[in-house]
Design a protein around this nucleic acid. Structure first.
Lengths: 135, 135
DNA sequence: AGCATAATGACAATCGGTTTCACTATCGTT
DNA sequence: AACGATAGTGAAACCGATTGTCATTATGCT
């Protein structure tokens, strides 16, 4: 990570993102980072997230309540994880669990987009349990 | 399909949707259906798409240029297809290509959401080729 | 014909997200 | 220390997709 100029804001955002251990929206990131950098604007949060995505440190993990959520990727190489669509909890998947799907797509003349499939939508045990209760 | 009252608009929308053989946005659907039903409003197109989704005839297949795109599902049972993120072309995947991923997720304590994984983002050969040219 | 109600469409409102633009912070150079 | 170039910033305007409102219309039933 190359901080470039004015590293204070980005560091606040990075710390905030790392400390929340789940998928989060830009708005949530902004709110969390404001504890450390009160004058931080929402625009900068959006710009920083886009930068992280371009540089591969973050990826989009679907939407929640109408707004896009993202995950910070610790693993840099080829990997996939699951993200709970309710609470944002994440887990890394072992091995290349999407290879069969990729093969199947290839025979149909399509290339699966790893970039868009880094985070598979799922429901974690806690949220699945809560769902049963409310249903 | 139960047409209910005033079937003219919905039939126009359904015909339009069926005739375009690819993923499409609500706005595209509305435009196409207007040939057969000129007074059709955009609101009705949105409402109809939501209804189709609730009833299982359509599912969201990501976004393109900021607007959500959908596919009409011919197959009713458990199935997955790929959707080209560039042109919207679709193909049905053979077999249960996502089973390994589901297993892997389960060991991590997550349930993959079939509903959200009906359409896997991909790129078709034509668009992949066009991409190479422009790059 | 008359009624109850589903369906409709024009328009307003909402809401993520992006763009604009004047201002500020940082860095290398004098 | 002052300076100039440029990256970075935030408030506010803007945009476009989607949803809500509400008076009107179409439909099926009696």
């Amino acid at each position: 990570m190359e901080p470039g100029r004015n590293r204070k804001n980005r560091m606040a955002l990075l710390d905030a993102g790392r400390s929340m251990n789940r998928a989060f929206s830009v708005r949530e990131l902004h709110t969390a980072a404001r504890d450390a950098a009160p004058r931080l604007g929402l625009t900068t949060a959006y710009r920083t997230m886009e930068r992280w995505r371009e540089e591969g440190w973050a990826e989009e993990a679907g939407t929640r309540g109408g707004e896009a959520v993202y995950v910070l990727c610790a693993a840099q190489g080829h990997h996939h994880h699951v993200v709970c669509v309710d609470c944002g909890a994440t887990a890394l998947l072992e091995g290349c669990a999407l290879e069969p799907a990729r093969e199947s797509a290839r025979t149909a003349g399509f290339d699966l987009l790893d970039a868009a499939l880094g985070s598979l939508p799922a429901r974690c045990q806690a949220c699945a349990g809560a769902d049963e209760q409310s249903a």
